[in-house]
Each structure stands twice: as C-alpha cells, then as structure tokens.
Write a protein that binds this DNA or RNA. Structure first.
Length: 308
DNA sequence: CGTATTTGACCGGCGC
DNA sequence: GCGCCGGTCAAATACG
C-alpha cells in the first residue's frame, strides 16, 4: 500500500473549544490577557503536563508505542503528492529518539564534496571529538513544530547563532542549524522549510535551556511559548520521557507575523471567521496530517512505529 | 574591531 | 566495506 498506516497519527483538535487562543498575536505583548489567551496562558494555565498532554490529545498510554518500537519504516511520499492546505498551520513534535530525521530515504546523487583531500595533507582540519570513547552522544529531547511563516528563523525569545546550513535531500530548501548563544547552553535548533508547503517552516529544538530568556527579547513570541515548550527536556521530565510530541495548531501563522509588523492584533471579525472555520478545519487538519505525514515521519521517526 | 553569518570540508552513523 | 547523508567545525567573509 502506498499509504502508510496513518490511523495512528496523532491528530487532535485541542483548541477546538479554545478558539480564543487563535486570536493570540505575538506582534507585541498581549495588551489584554483577559480578552484572549496567549499560548503561554493557555498552556501554563494547565500547569501540569498531564493537562497539556491531554490538551494536545496525548495520553499516558500513547507513550508506549513511542519509546518501544524501532524505526524501520521507509515512507516518504513523492514531492508534489497531496498539497497541503493553506490553512494548515503548525505541527509540534518532540522527540528524544535521536534517530535520524530524514535519513530514511532513497538516495540521490548529491555533490557532497567528500574526501577532496587537500594537497597539503593538513590533517589538522578535523572535527574534534569531545566525547569519550564508547560514550555515545546523549540523546537530547527534541521538540519540533511546523509553522506557516515567511520567515525562516522564527523568533522564540532566545538568541541563536547559525553554525551551519545544509541542503536536505528531499527538499529544495536548505536546513539551517542554530545554537543558543548563551554560554553553557547547548540547545540547538534546526530550521527548514517544508518542501510540500514552502510557506511552512519546520523548526526543531533540541536540548534544554539552562537559563532564562534574554530580557531584551521578552515580549516577542517568547511570551507565547511556555518555558516547558521551549525546553523539551522539561517536557520529558514532565511525563514525556523519550516521547515524541505532536501537536497541531491552526492559524498559528498569526503568531509569527510579527516580523513585518503587519499583525496588529486580532480583530473580532477575523476571530469570528476563524471560529466558524474551526468546524471546517477538522478536514484541513486531517489533510495536513495526511499530506505531511511523510514529513512528520522525518521529524518524528517513531510516529508510525506505534502501528502494529 | 568585534560579532555574526556563510560555506566548504570533515566525521560518524547507517543502509546496502 | 563502501557510499550516502545529516550534523558539525572553523576559516573566510560580511556586517554594524
């Protein structure tokens, strides 16, 4: 069957009854929290991860398939198969499975300049290996989400320094690698654009911040994401041990429209419009989930392990 | 001049 | 064992 078993895709509509959330606007600090909830409010209000998990359609039982099985799938759909609906918005996922994101595919001749050797025999140019022998790199918790945005590098409140960029195999768009600039903080994040929906940015956080948000950046999107969500490790510690975490949030793109200063806050009409759309969004959720399934498998290899 | 980004090379894991 | 590929390093470059 060309289609993967997606009956286990974790689709949920946690915000169906919390539409206020969608009115969240990150262009500035929410001026009136009482009128609508921010992402932070929404999630912090839950305080405990159980609520958060349930809000995202997660349950303790569903943790099992995540951590048990091994990745052996060979999915991935051909590009151009099922376009993503414009209204698809955000997919969150976290993982500690240091499995490859998308090393699961057929190969394609790539011009990777490997072993060019250099004539000088300068062997000094080698990547130092800080880790001890036999000590495998620790698996950092990961947390990924998809966002509709024209901006590649979404502001999340932390300062990042780009340390690499690579062309990814099944996408015409490169993947950028960022590292938290705070000393002693080993958090990294990858940013890439969905090849299926160029308007969608996939951001993957890895590691746990050991510091607070830079004060100079308060108020941006940082305020929209609870600390726990920006710290996958915390999530893992809150009941998500070695689990992948997937969440979809419709219309999250509004959150990231701060870049151009175009979003000046939610207007009631839009709010209502979105409310009405919620009922229809169910199908759109599904479409996103289905059409991006291969992509999600890349991000969260274990997503389909639970099958069987 | 200091800091951030770019970019080619290298390394290690994994599949064949 | 070989080749592919993701991830990382670090010199070169750009920028403020």
């Amino acid at each position: 069957m060309a289609d993967q078993p997606r009956d286990h895709v974790y689709y949920h509509d946690p915000f169906h009854d919390q539409q206020r959330f969608f009115t969240t606007n990150s262009s500035s600090v929410a001026p009136d929290p009482s009128s609508y909830m921010s992402f932070t409010d929404c999630l912090q209000g839950s305080t405990d991860y159980g609520s958060l998990a349930s809000a995202f359609g997660l349950s303790p039982s569903f943790q099992e398939p995540f951590s048990s099985t091994k990745k052996d799938q060979k999915p991935k759909m051909e590009s151009g198969e099922a376009p993503v609906t414009p209204n698809s918005s955000v997919v969150l996922s976290s993982s500690t499975e240091a499995g490859d994101d998308e090393a699961n595919n057929s190969k394609k001749s790539d011009k990777q300049t490997k072993g060019t050797g250099e004539d000088g025999g300068e062997s000094s140019k080698k990547v130092s290996k800080p880790k001890k022998k036999g000590e495998k790199k620790e698996k950092e918790p990961r947390f990924a989400f998809m966002t509709k945005s024209e901006i590649d590098h979404l502001e999340d409140g932390y300062r990042w320094r780009k340390y690499g960029q690579k062309a990814v195999k099944n996408s015409p768009y490169p993947r950028s690698y960022y590292r938290c600039t705070t000393q002693k903080c080993t958090v990294k994040k990858r940013v890439e654009r969905s090849f299926q929906d160029p308007s969608t940015v996939i951001t993957t956080y890895e590691g746990t911040h050991n510091h607070h948000l830079p004060s100079t950046l308060r108020g941006s999107v940082a305020g929209l994401f609870p600390h726990s969500m920006l710290n996958p490790g915390h999530m893992a510690g809150m009941g998500f041990p070695n689990q992948d975490f997937l969440v979809q949030m419709p219309q999250m793109n509004h959150i990231y429209n701060y870049g151009g200063g175009t979003s000046n806050g939610p207007n009631p009409s839009m709010y209502q419009h979105q409310q009405q759309q919620q009922s229809n969004n169910l199908n759109q959720y599904q479409q996103l989930q289905l059409s991006d399934y291969g992509l999600l498998q890349d991000i969260v290899p274990s997503i389909n392990k639970n099958h069987e």
